[in-house]
Design a protein around this nucleic acid. Sequence first.
RNA 1: GGCCCCAUGGUCAAGUGGUUAAGACACGGCCCUUUCAAGGCCGUAACAGGGGUUCGAAUCCCCUUGGGGUCACCA
Length: 487
Amino acid sequence: MAREVRTRYAPSPTGYMHIGNLRTALYEYLIARSMNGKFILRIEDTDQERLVEGAVDVIYNTLKLCGLKHDEGPDIGGPCGPYIQSQRRHIYLPYARELVEKGHAYYCFCSKERLEQLRSEAEAKGETFMYDRHCLKLSKEEVEEKLAKGEPWVIRQKMPREGSTTFDDMVFGTITIENNMLEDQILIKSDGLPTYNFANVIDDHLMGITHVVRGSEYLTSTPKYNLLYDAFDWEKPVYVHLPLIVKPDGSKLSKRKGDASFEDLVEMGFLVEAIINYIALLGWSPDSNQEIFSLAELEKAFDIRRISKSPSCFDMEKLRWFNAEYIRAMPAEKFHSLALPYLEKAITNKAIDLAKVSKLLQNRVEVLTEIPSKVGFFNSLEDYDLNIYTHKKMKTTLENSLENLKAALPVLEKLEPWTEESIHSSLLSLVESMGIKNGQMLWPIRTALSGWEVTPGGAIEIADILGKEETVRRIQIGIERLEKALA
RNA sequence: GGCCCCAUGGUCAAGUGGUUAAGACACGGCCCUUUCAAGGCCGUAACAGGGGUUCGAAUCCCCUUGGGGUCACCA
């Protein structure tokens, strides 16, 4: 029987969840779920210099928001704990020592200064710097002596100098790297903690990870990890390297350049379901034409073999479309509850029924944050350019607008009860009796009621929401202003 | 620069030797219509270039070009 599939999401807590990281987490989750496996969260905080306060919470919150429930992790425990590398610090050194004994690694006492100098010398000559194995020559006695003296040390992996290393990746296929390209990388740092390069191998093995899923930037260093697995005689995992997500200009997403993180997108008014749906399709495609996927549907449909190799571009427009699809598909009450915080800020007039405004908005909004800019006229009528009354297609002019507003005013003043239906029928029968086009009546009314050229909803819906009193008042203002202009 | 990887419309992408080269976003047009949306219908638009292999290449091989990644006591 095959081993249980186990994947892991192993972020370092930088306090910033970029879209590529999130997609990696999503794919790891989907691979595990689609194969009845386990999804593990492990925090890779071996870089003490980059620790960020509260960063781990960002990770928990994001996973939770997105519904990527892990089966094991720092917060919920599990059989392979602890799940935070800094809390596992004591387990790595013995493994490194084992490697030293076996001849696959060695102590190095070179100072950072020496290395920096060698590096800059190489750079000056236009060469690629690679550690010169200065400390490999040290005898066992010399090493013991330096250790006894308390000289700072690191442990380096001893790479083979000849031959090549080949591995298979589920998405990129067979990859071969010449061994002489591999540097004797540091396994244990002078602070006693392992580097990512070492810790990830030890932990992945100890945690029984079967599928190592990560960005394609790790492709060229994977041979080093396999050499480690071989040195320990451990079973190697299946590798799934993911193509990068890039910006429209082709460069990769980065925090430094201010590219949107997951949190930013949420703040920008995007729904997590839409974000997940969109990024799932960035680099993976189903075997159907289905575009809209819930997380549960993704769990069923996901297939590693359909991950693409080429990098894909993060397209805000497409995300907006997904977001709009989710907004339109949700029940009106749900949309209203999401829209409410934005509406309450934009509309302070308590007479306005915000639920009705939400109904108007649901089909007209792609992201929640654009709500305020669409509803200001409900709150109060601002001065507007009278030229809006003139509309060629509606066949309206200043003159007939005035005329029609004057005709509508008494009808509306008398109207009882004040409902969308009653407004509709009274206005339309007025139109009929006057023998004019609908637009010639409704365009001027909508203009008078809103003062805007474009509004969510038409004259009737707006009149209903505004209420009789305010509707009449705004029409009167329109009449007065038109009369003044035409006088 | 060395090494590794990638290459279908502006974007996401299907396609695994024989297709009129899907679909989606965006864009344009039309319809619907009280503005704007939504919805419906239609349309513009692609196999980077050059060599092979083959009866036949988007699909296989090579070269070129372009793009990306990687070369840390970061992950």
